[in-house]
């Protein structure tokens, strides 16, 4: 009786803030999220630097312990699992990281990457079997074994190295891959190849993904749904199409309208001015974290953080603009339309 593969309940991570340390950084606050076990999904966690997206990745992979909240894998809290289940969790939940250069030991041939996991998780009984499954995994990511095996990392391109990391993850037959900015250091023409591989792994091998990125364009390409984080809190979440085509939260609107579209006819609208305080990280206590930068800030925004309001079929925004007011019905909707005409 498991309905979810991964369930995150009210997860919070605070750095610092001991008894004598007043420098507390709330990296992630009250994050909840579920990946169903029956059908695979690619979920994007998007945000700017300091939004807490990498903290979330490291929490899910078990690299960090949460300050509060729970991460349940197949219904069990990962920090209270018996050893055997923890081992299974570590095999079935894999990570792919941003830097395809830093993840390799330059003194070892790339084969070592595969040999290590095969030994650790006892994936093969003989050398030839090890070789066979390695070659299979390389084929899945579109690499020729004889082009790759026996080489040192510096002899391969960034795109090849990143695909090897995907192959390594695939070798373990994972259920979930946490991909933290897997293509941000890779050239445009090779990005597509890696994104297409991730999508194929989802469709053919039923692997779910958490795609962690600052890049909404690539997120739009591959994901099913999206969370927009800002300073550790969810600003908006929902279906990728809804959030990208019709962003509701003022922050999402600002983000989406700032993406440089590779089309000279679709320009940035208007001039964007940021005050220097905006660019400095300012933690606000109490109210909405975006209120300093928000063009629609209201009194209530300073008092308490807004809950997630339903703003579409499967779309939620944490913003008081969407609070249903008694008797006023859909008043906010016309407000919003007026605002969007003025251009994000």
């Amino acid at each position: 009786m498991q309905s979810s593969l991964l369930e995150i309940r009210d997860l919070t991570k605070i750095y610092g803030g001991g008894l004598f340390n007043r420098d507390r950084t709330v990296a992630l606050e009250g994050f909840s999220f579920t990946i169903p076990s029956d059908h695979p999904r690619i979920t994007t966690i998007a945000g700017e630097s300091g939004s807490g997206k990498t903290t979330l990745a490291n929490l899910i992979l078990g690299f960090l312990t949460p300050t509060s909240g729970e991460i349940l894998y197949k219904g069990k809290n990962i920090w209270e699992m018996p050893k055997q289940e923890w081992f299974t969790f570590r095999r079935e939940v894999q990570g792919i990281f941003q830097d395809p250069y830093g993840t390799y030991n330059p003194f070892y041939k790339v084969d070592n990457v595969f040999d290590m996991v095969i030994r650790k998780f006892k994936l093969a009984r003989s050398r030839s079997e090890a070789r066979r499954i390695t070659e299979e995994a390389l084929a899945v990511v579109g690499l020729q074994p004889d082009e790759i095996l026996g080489k040192y990392p510096h002899q391969l391109s960034g795109g090849q190295r990143q695909r090897i990391m995907v192959a390594r993850a695939f070798l373990l037959k994972p259920r979930l891959i946490v991909a933290d900015e897997p293509v941000s250091m890779i050239d445009a023409s090779l990005q597509v190849r890696i994104l297409n591989i991730l999508q194929r792994l989802k469709e053919e091998f039923s692997i779910s993904f958490l795609y962690i990125t600052h890049d909404l364009s690539t997120a739009y390409q591959i994901s099913d749904d999206i969370f927009i984080l800002y300073q550790g809190s969810v600003m908006e979440k929902g279906d990728i199409d809804g959030v990208m085509q019709n962003p509701r939260h003022p922050y999402t609107q600002l983000l989406v309208s700032s993406i440089p579209v590779p089309d000279p006819d679709v320009g940035w609208e208007g001039d964007l001015k940021l005050s220097s305080e905006d660019e400095m990280r300012t933690d606000t206590t109490g109210g909405c974290k975006f209120h300093r930068r928000c063009p629609h800030v209201m009194e209530i925004c300073l008092k308490s953080p807004p809950p997630l309001y339903k703003v579409g079929q499967n779309q939620y925004a944490s913003c008081y603009l969407y609070e249903e007011k008694k008797g006023s019905g859909n008043l906010w909707r016309t407000d919003y339309d007026k605002m969007s005409q003025q251009g994000g």
């Binding site: 391109s157 795109g159 445009a188 023409s189 990005q191 739009y220 390409q221 989406v256 579209v261 590779p262």
Partner: peptide, 22 residues
Amino acid sequence: QLLISSLPSPRDKRKKKEIPGL
């Protein structure tokens, strides 16, 4: 042409073409 058609865009969800080779 290939480079332009490989670019992800927030406006267009169609699967992008890959540039073969390195």
